[in-house]
């Protein structure tokens, strides 16, 4: 339908685009193996794991490994919540329920309202809660509040909430895409054979949509693991890895930062590979399973 020359130029454009996407990251990967006397730019002065060793010894006063652990833990919690809540909401949206339109538009807005505004809002919310707790504690003379209470803000309160406003919309949109293509005759068949609602869900719906749930999990974990803007004001006292990284961009002037970049990118790629392999395996199993003659087209 398109001429050969046109297709060829589009192909070249696409190749350049992929180079543009991956090229810079590759340069970081290479430079993180810079020799001990090497700097932030090419040429390579030798080849060593010096900067990785320097990373393992710690970067200045910052607790990189603590931040790394926090990012992984928060990522896993966000992942589980994103999958479960999006699945439940996705099922709910197949029917009508009160305020469903409002919820849909609120979710879309949550995706496109500037992240700094959400971060500010969540920070304000927890600050007001803090003030309220202190006031109530003072009024009622609750000793631990007066002595020890600092803040309700933290990784798994305000930080978790702020990140969910970013991952949940993606989860819901994927569920919409899934259920828009879902053939309800499978459910009807299960019901006709006497399955209850829970059994229908577990044995008819869940196996079919399982690969997509892996996709939601992939979004949940990776988006949380790299999330920066929304948690920036709302994370509390202890930072996640991306926040520490952003701080390091202005202070660290040797290839340690590239070593850290290589490491965190490796974690991302590991996660992406695991999810993609799981996705493929589940897809294959679903495709192989004996399926009833479909009633619909």
């Amino acid at each position: 339908m398109f001429g050969r020359g046109f297709k060829l130029s589009l192909g070249i454009f696409f190749t350049l685009f992929i180079l543009f996407l991956y090229g810079p990251t590759l340069s970081i990967l290479v430079l993180s193996f810079q020799g001990p006397n090497g700097g932030l730019t090419f040429p390579m002065r030798g080849f060593s794991t010096f900067w990785f060793e320097s990373l393992f010894d710690g970067v200045g006063v910052i607790d990189i490994w603590g931040a790394f652990g926090r990012s992984i833990r928060l990522g896993l919690v966000v992942m589980v919540l994103t999958v479960v809540l999006s699945l439940m909401a996705g099922m709910a949206f197949r029917k009508r329920f009160p305020l469903s339109s409002f919820l849909f538009y609120a979710t879309i807005s949550s995706l496109i309202v500037p992240s700094i505004v959400i971060s500010l809002g969540v920070a304000l919310e927890f600050r007001i809660i803090d003030d309220a707790v202190k006031a109530i504690g003072g009024d009622m003379n609750i000793q631990w509040v007066i002595d020890d209470f600092r803040t309700t803000m933290g990784l798994f309160s305000s930080g978790l909430g702020a990140q969910l406003t970013w991952t949940l919309p993606f989860g819901l949109l994927i569920m919409f895409a899934v259920f828009n293509r879902f053939d309800p005759s499978y459910e009807e068949a299960a019901r006709d054979l006497g399955a209850g609602p829970w059994q229908t869900f577990r044995e008819a719906v869940l196996p079919i949509i399982a690969p997509s749930l892996i996709g939601v999990a992939l979004f949940g974990f990776t988006l949380s693991y790299d999330e920066l803007a929304r948690s920036s004001q709302a994370i509390g006292g202890l930072n996640t890895l991306p926040l520490e990284l952003r701080g390091l961009t202005t202070t660290v002037t040797d290839p340690t930062i590239y070593a850290l970049g290589t490491l965190t990118t490796a974690v991302s790629f590991l996660a992406i590979s695991i999810f993609l392999i799981l996705f493929t395996l589940l897809r294959r199993r679903t495709a192989k399973a004996p399926r009833p003659e479909s009633a619909g087209p």
Binding site: L85, A89, A92, T107, E125
Partner: peptide, 28 residues
């Protein structure tokens, strides 16, 4: 429960969006 199953299913999702998006936006 059966008639309101959709509402119940959407509740946790709606709660998070409400608590961490709608309320913070109103507070701003």
């Amino acid at each position: 429960v059966k008639r309101h199953s959709a509402t119940l299913l959407s509740f946790p999702f709606a709660f998070v969006i409400f608590a961490f998006f709608v309320v913070p936006l109103c507070l701003v």
